[in-house]
């Protein structure tokens, strides 16, 4: 259940930046959470509402984009979609697969509103 401390990190990061920008409140936060990042988006959303209570992000909508996992075979170089860390190359059956996408975990952007409501 690490989603709670992660939700708090997100609130802390966006709130700090929003204050620098002189925002009244934050209406939307865009996150990039790769399917292999080890984060449950639903759990994160659930925790976020508790973590954001009483902050500038209290009413922010959490928009989560979830890039698919992509692996690259270390033997034959094939690039293919992966759902798990223990992927096998579909071409040569090698297990020497490097994850090249799907582990992203970023705060992309936020939308700030000037007016305090």
């Amino acid at each position: 259940m690490h989603e709670m401390s992660i939700a708090l990190s997100i609130v802390e990061a966006v709130e700090e930046r929003a204050r620098q920008e002189g925002a009244g409140w934050i209406s939307e936060i865009e996150l990039l959470v790769g399917k292999l990042a080890g984060i449950e988006p639903e759990s994160l959303k659930f925790c976020f509402s508790a973590a954001a209570a009483g902050t500038l992000a209290a009413r922010a909508l959490l928009a989560i984009e979830e890039p698919e996992g992509v692996g690259e075979c270390g033997e034959c170089g094939m690039i293919f979609p992966v759902n798990f860390y223990y992927a096998e190359c579909p071409a040569c059956r090698s297990l020497r697969v490097k994850i090249i996408s799907g582990e992203e975990f970023l705060i992309q952007s936020m939308t700030i509103e000037e007016e305090e409501e």
């Binding site: 970023l106 952007s109 939308t111 509103e113």
Partner: peptide
């Protein structure tokens, strides 16, 4: 007035950046 539309701020920051 901004007619209710917010301003987008790009962060592109790792969520676990602080840690």
């Amino acid at each position: 007035h901004h007619e209710g539309s917010g301003r987008k701020v790009v962060l592109e920051q790792d969520v676990l950046q602080k840690n």
